[in-house]
Amino acid sequence: MAVVEFQGKSFEVDEDGFLQRFEDWTPEWVEYVKESEGIKDMTEDHQKVIDFLQDYYKKNGIAPMVRILSKVTGFKLKQIYELFPSGPGKGACKMAGLPKPTGCV
């Protein structure tokens, strides 16, 4: 597995650039990933999505369904794509440090 060094931190990632362990997440991870996910500047809205994903994951052990993400954050799917161009799975979940989405994708 590849190891990424960034601002004095190191992160173990898979081929798709997802963190191998949720516990390894630090705010530097977001800074490191954002460019490859097409994001220039992190805003409060970005943070709100990331915070919710992390809370939900800690509480439930899975990522929330898209519908729940929209409902709780108040962001429509269109707005989520404006924030995270590769979408809630590849974009937001990756930045939040959640495990890679699986299944028939």
């Binding site: 081929e15 798709d16 794509y81 590849k90």
Partner: peptide
């Protein structure tokens, strides 16, 4: 082939099946 794979293009949430 390894398990899964999440790749794609900006703007879309699907369309590409990643494989390693």
């Amino acid at each position: 082939w390894k398990h899964g794979g999440i790749v794609g293009v900006f703007g879309y949430g699907g369309g590409v099946i990643g494989r390693y």
